[in-house]
């Protein structure tokens, strides 16, 4: 289980995360919702040990171990896998090179390891394009590659930052099915989203954040039943 405890993160003098706490239980999908600029990416970067921002107080714990102060590669090797906002595939590398670059074998978490053939079964598109340079893929294909690249490191928890950003509705529903398939493998997911529908369809638990603080925590059904809250913090009825 991933625990974020009273986290305070800053960019220089800007105090962005203001005592944010949340938890992602083993094997669950937890969604973080919030409007632009509310600190979602800051949260993901703080968990992953990426700087900036600078974490000035609070803790991040994974399976009971403190992650704060470790470097990103050490955090990744403890089982966290980042699928960053904006995909950030290695543009000049081929699809295959992107996938094998950081591949790590089974991580001893008892689950069958992700291999090229398993990843291609989930994203057949990538197999068709495996020799193509990643920079020439479409946005949707790049998103699949960003997810697949991280799966190849065999993480036990995925941090996905707005995977649906910029995708056409048809691709978003395809992405939903793919993330559902991932969920069924028992991997835990922290899913940052602005697409309420996608988050509601996938999440076991939802956090809404505003200005670096949690303003709502509950099940998707609770959020569904509270249009006033959705209107105030997410701008959708």
């Amino acid at each position: 289980m991933l625990e974020v405890i009273e986290l305070h993160s800053h960019y220089g003098t800007a105090h962005i995360l203001q005592g944010l706490s949340l938890a992602v239980p083993l094997g669950k999908v937890v969604s973080v919702l919030g409007r632009n600029g509310m600190g979602k990416t800051t949260l993901v970067r703080s968990i992953m040990g990426l700087t900036p921002p600078e974490v000035r107080s609070g803790d991040v714990r994974y399976q009971g171990e403190a992650l704060r102060g470790l470097s990103p590669y050490e955090i990744a090797r403890r089982g966290l896998g980042l699928v960053p906002q904006g995909r950030r595939v290695f543009r000049s590398l081929s699809v295959l090179e992107n996938l094998t670059l950081a591949a790590r074998g089974p991580q001893g978490n008892g689950k069958p390891a992700w291999t090229l053939s398993r990843v291609f079964a989930l994203f057949p598109r990538l197999e068709e394009r495996k020799h193509q340079r990643a920079g020439t893929l479409s946005g949707g294909e790049q998103q699949m590659l960003a997810i697949a690249r991280t799966l190849m490191t065999n993480p036990s928890l995925l941090l996905m930052d707005e995977p649906s950003e910029g995708l056409a509705p048809l691709l978003v529903s395809q992405l939903r099915d793919q993330i559902l398939a991932l969920k069924e493998t028992g991997i835990a997911i922290l899913l940052v989203e602005q697409n309420l529908g996608l988050a509601m369809a996938l999440a076991d638990e939802v956090y809404v954040i505003e200005k670096g603080m949690v303003v709502f925590n509950g099940t998707p059904q609770d959020l569904e039943a509270n249009p006033e809250l959705r209107q105030r913090h997410l701008g959708v009825g």
Binding site: M48, L50, S71, P72, Y73, A76, R77, G81, L82, P84, R88, F90, R91, S92, L93, E97, N98, T100, L101, A102, R104, R149, T150, T153
Partner: peptide, 18 residues
């Protein structure tokens, strides 16, 4: 491969555990 990926996006190379 790691060097070329690092030229593209150093931070992502680290975030993938390298």
């Amino acid at each position: 491969r790691i060097i070329r990926a690092g030229v593209d996006d150093l931070e992502m190379v680290a975030a993938l555990g390298i």
